[in-house]
């Protein structure tokens, strides 16, 4: 390991630890005036489990999204690839809209919050299956075809969601928009949280073990094949792993953008392009980004409650991405 890599890991780890401590310590108390005052203190029961739940959810989702982003950038050989290019976010959104509309039609209370986990997961997996089915050419996943199919699936799912919005009341539309902005649950489903962690851990280990093959696949199809790499199997593995990670993350926290796009670039900037170190570094970067955003948003309340985490990741991630682009840091080629 070169000093640069060691330094990069230390930096990412430090950001994670600071973000974790900040998320666990920052809270707010209501004042007589109706305003809230932000306070830093170590939480006691019954607040502690809520903050641990939020921190755990952010860590798990950040891990999943960062890793999924990296795998997709490798698979599509496109630095703009992120978990949303395969239409998973829109598919999850469609799943949620179908659940809301169905509840309205049969006259039962519409699901909210945790009740949206299953429809979101089903929608994401449904979009994944369609993209997978149509993204193959001669039985092999083709990056360009996959990208195009993903874009079309996303557009179709988005359009269907919009159509369904017309048959639900305004209040439920607001709930849907709220869900689309992402939310880190304070009391997540234990099973879902565990699924995210286990899935992310398994994919991280496997991807690190296969890092040399992944490096080879980045050279191009002909070079990879001439080196004896089974490109079809690798692409299938990358696609399924990225899809499952994204579906799990969306089910847990909703569609949160920019984490999957930026984490691999941040990690590349710090530890370089070799996947043996890039895979774990990206996981740390994803965790640091989402946990950091979740901590920072505790300080920002524009009147309607704390800023949504998905809004903050976009507000911070967009300029950061432009900075990478404009300063030509070598990660966007």
């Amino acid at each position: 390991m070169t000093p640069r890599i060691v330094l990069g890991f230390c930096l990412l780890l430090s950001i994670c630890v600071v973000a974790l401590l900040l998320r666990l310590m920052v809270g707010r108390i209501p004042l007589e005036s109706g305003a809230w005052q932000v306070v830093l203190s170590w939480p006691e029961d019954p607040i502690r489990p809520l903050r641990l739940g939020a921190a755990g959810s952010a860590l798990a989702a950040g891990w999943c999204l960062g890793l999924a982003g990296l795998l997709l950038q490798v698979l599509l050989r496109n630095p703009l690839a992120s978990p949303w290019v395969l239409g998973l976010s829109s598919g999850a959104g469609l799943g949620v809209m179908i659940a809301l509309a169905a509840a309205v039609m049969v006259g039962v209370d519409a699901p909210t919050g945790g009740g949206l986990v299953v429809p979101a997961g089903c929608g994401a997996l449904g979009a994944l299956a369609i993209t997978w089915w149509l993204g193959r050419e001669g039985g092999v996943l083709e990056p360009l075809r996959l990208l195009l199919v993903g874009v079309i699936v996303a557009s179709l799912a988005g359009a269907l969601s919009m159509a369904l919005q017309d048959i639900v009341p305004h209040g439920l539309r607001a709930d849907f928009i709220d869900w689309m902005m992402g939310r880190i649950p304070e009391a997540p489903s234990g099973g879902l949280l565990l699924t995210c962690f286990v899935l992310a851990a398994v994919v991280t280990v496997v991807a690190t073990l296969l890092a040399d093959w992944i490096d080879l696949s980045c050279l191009g199809s002909d070079e990879a094949r001439s080196s004896g790499l089974n490109l079809a199997s690798l692409r299938t593995g990358l696609f399924l792993a990225a899809g499952a990670l994204t579906a799990a993350a969306v089910a847990l926290v909703g569609p949160i953008g920019f984490v999957g796009l930026l984490s691999p670039h941040l990690a590349r900037l710090l530890v370089g392009p070799t996947h043996r170190v890039l895979v774990p570094a990206t996981c740390l970067a994803g965790m640091a980004m989402l946990l950091g955003a979740e901590a920072v948003r505790q300080f920002i309340d524009l009147g309607g409650g704390r800023l949504h985490v998905g809004v903050l990741t976009a507000l911070l991630g967009g300029p950061f991405f432009l900075w990478l682009l404009c300063t030509n840091r070598g990660t966007l080629r």
Binding site: R28, I29, W36, P46, I47, L50, G305
Partner: peptide, 9 residues
């Protein structure tokens, strides 16, 4: 919109 923690505080 509130958080569960807000309800407690």
């Amino acid at each position: 919109e509130l958080s569960l923690e807000d309800l407690l505080t």
